[in-house]
């Protein structure tokens, strides 16, 4: 999928913000934050998904 362009600007980095490698992990997605549902096994993008799932490949590995 193409990247969506967002015209609204990012905020400036607050004064004194600091973190190792410039990244702070704060929260996580919990199991409750997701629902088991069934994808329709139809279309080219599903087939790509099935290929990745069956060969245990990631998106980046798939890109190569």
């Amino acid at each position: 999928m193409e990247a969506t362009v967002i015209p609204l600007p990012l905020p400036a980095l607050p004064e004194g913000w600091e973190a190792e490698n410039n990244f702070k992990a704060i929260g996580k997605i919990t199991q409750e934050g997701a629902t088991q549902r069934t994808l329709e096994p139809v279309g080219p993008y599903f087939l790509a998904h099935a290929r990745r799932a069956r060969h245990k490949r990631t998106f980046s590995e798939d890109d190569r």
Binding site: M1, A3, T4, V5, I6, P7
Partner: peptide, 14 residues
């Protein structure tokens, strides 16, 4: 998913 967000003033962004 990937997005491109504008940073019109440049500099350090959050």
């Amino acid at each position: 998913r990937t997005v491109h967000v504008s940073a019109p003033n440049g500099g350090d962004v959050l």
